[in-house]
Simulated assay, not measured.
Amino acid sequence: MSRAAGLASRGGASRHYQVFFPLLAALIACAWVALWAWARSPYGRYLEHGDWTASGPAALLCRAIPAGDVVVPLVLYAAAWILMTAAMMLPTTLPLINAFDRLTAQRPDHGRLVALLLLGYMTAWGAFGLLAHALHSAVLSLLAGVPALAWHGWLIGVGIIALAGAFQFSRFKYQCLEKCRTPLSFIMARWRGQAEAGHAFALGVQHGLFCVGCCWALMLLMFGLGAGSLGWMLLLAAAMAVEKNVRWGRFLRRPLGVALLSWAVVLVATHV
């Protein structure tokens, strides 16, 4: 490597650690602070995915705008989900952002490309969030229409916990996890540097889909445990970050699966 190239490389690394990571850390911290403030505000119930249109400001908006009973809950849910995803999942994808940031550091549109990568990643998780919200709404409608199921609603939570535990042992989980654990290989296999904006966004979407494939069952636990519980969010975020970023993280998936399945068994035993 020439002296000029070495200086450029060291300069890029210095910029990377002095600017990029502090900005990303600030973004993640702001997401957690916003969730904390929201959970403790008079609007904290909107994090729980319950009946948002029954009372309060949301009910007024629902009556004031066309199709408000659909639009308002969807907007509130989307805002909550984006905050949750930013707080919980962005820390797990730091190696991808790090690798892509270094790869595109010399490009004049570097900042825009990184932003598009993040936007693509969040888009994949946003799509999953919409599907999860639709499923959650369908379950609530079913419980409201069948009182016998409502009396045994705890079975749904147990089922989600058992599903998350069983998924930890699946081959699909392992394959997606390995894609998440090798971000540089993932980028080099897909990044061509042509039509940069579209490719950066597509790269974020693709990695986001693998991340969803790896973590969807653990994220569904938020619906069973309470989406407004910051303690559970922190615990699940830490578990997913270790799985994806720490050298021995791949070995966590089986013990975590055993713990979740055992928890489900204990819950069934205490309710029977």
Rank of each mutant, 00 (worst) to 15 (best):
S55I: 03
G56D: 02
G56Q: 00
G56M: 05
A58V: 08
L61P: 01
L61G: 01
R63W: 06
R63P: 04
G68E: 00
V70E: 06
L76D: 06
Y77C: 10
A79P: 08
A79D: 04
A79H: 03
A80M: 10
A80I: 07
A80L: 06
W81H: 13
W81F: 11
W81S: 09
W81A: 10
I82M: 11
L83F: 04
M84L: 13
T85A: 09
T85L: 09
M88V: 03
M89L: 00
P91L: 04
T92Y: 01
T92G: 08
P95M: 10
F100V: 09
R102Y: 12
L103C: 01
T104L: 10
A105D: 07
A105M: 10
Q106C: 12
G111V: 10
L113K: 05
V114Y: 08
V114C: 07
L116A: 03
L117I: 05
L118I: 09
L118W: 02
L118S: 01
L119E: 14
L119G: 05
T123A: 15
G126M: 14
A127G: 15
F128V: 11
L130K: 05
L131I: 12
H133Y: 15
A134S: 08
H136M: 04
S141Q: 15
A144H: 14
A144Q: 14
G145N: 11
P147Q: 05
H152S: 09
G153I: 01
W154H: 14
I156N: 02
V158E: 11
G159H: 06
G159V: 05
I160F: 12
A162F: 11
L163W: 14
L163R: 09
A164S: 06
A164T: 08
G165A: 04
F167M: 10
F167Q: 14
F169I: 12
F169E: 02
S170T: 10
K173Y: 02
R181F: 12
R181L: 07
T182V: 05
M188R: 14
A189T: 02
